[in-house]
Design a protein around this nucleic acid. Sequence first.
DNA 1: CTCAATTAAGACCAAATAGGTCTACTATTT
DNA 2: AAATAGTAGACCTATTTGGTCTTAATTGAG
Lengths: 131, 131
Amino acid sequence: MLRITKITDYGFILLAHMANQDKELLHNAKDLSAAIGIPLPTVSKVLKILTQGGILQSHQGSKGGYSLAKPAGEITAAEIIEAVEGPVAITDCSSSEGCERNCVVSPSWQQVNTAVIGALSGLTLADMSNG
Amino acid sequence: MLRITKITDYGFILLAHMANQDKELLHNAKDLSAAIGIPLPTVSKVLKILTQGGILQSHQGSKGGYSLAKPAGEITAAEIIEAVEGPVAITDCSSSEGCERNCVVSPSWQQVNTAVIGALSGLTLADMSNG
DNA sequence: CTCAATTAAGACCAAATAGGTCTACTATTT
DNA sequence: AAATAGTAGACCTATTTGGTCTTAATTGAG
Ligand code: SF4
Ligand code: SF4
């Protein structure tokens, strides 16, 4: 339905919050949950996914937490979405797997897909955070 | 997951097929189903939705069928998607209803949404069909 | 060394959405 | 009248998404 998922949306909220504070500060899931107003288990899940996608760096154990893996100005919206939902593909045929029905409109979708990725790549977390 | 639905995809295939033929010719669901290779009930559903959305014109009764409501060059991809899935809104906050959690990243999503709609509005059915 | 705090991994279930089919009805042509 | 074709909408199934939970592994502090 041409919409990002809630998990992705939460990811952006969390990342923007982290980008607005001292870069070295470790944020733990519990504090973030309280700060953002999203239940802890969900926050925890999102942070885990973002870490697996290389957007966040984690530090385990007591006094552990998460921090941005790169400066906010170097993390693009496209990267974040890909980390959470996988490659951006507006149709089956604009993904790597493709589509067996290789129809006439496919090239147009490729164009649209490229344009969308372009828009998302031109926007960094720094742009999105404090504004 | 940032993807158009299958019904929408079918819609584009059907419309492109129709745009590639005589504008005045009426296409009935059965023939279109055979031509495109999508089951009749599904084709029928898609055509109905496109008609309700004002993209197609229908003609009931024997020898009836569907034809484009406007020249292919005047039907944009954005229009078609809206007709099938409703307004393009990449997040809750970029739709008319909005989102109660009015967060800091919302303005950025508005920008992205506008860019996406722009890309979709700049592409007509004529562009997408015979190309 | 032990304990508490904290992330990691993934199972799990419930809710929502999407995909697809079907039936009954209406309109038009012959 | 009969045949053809669209209209409306219910309906069920499959898939995806949202969210929670449990169990482990890791690390710092006392
Ligand atoms: S190839 Fe045609 S059918 Fe397959 S995804 Fe692309 S547009 Fe849709
Ligand atoms: S306002 Fe914030 S939370 Fe609500 S949809 Fe927009 S980005 Fe997501």
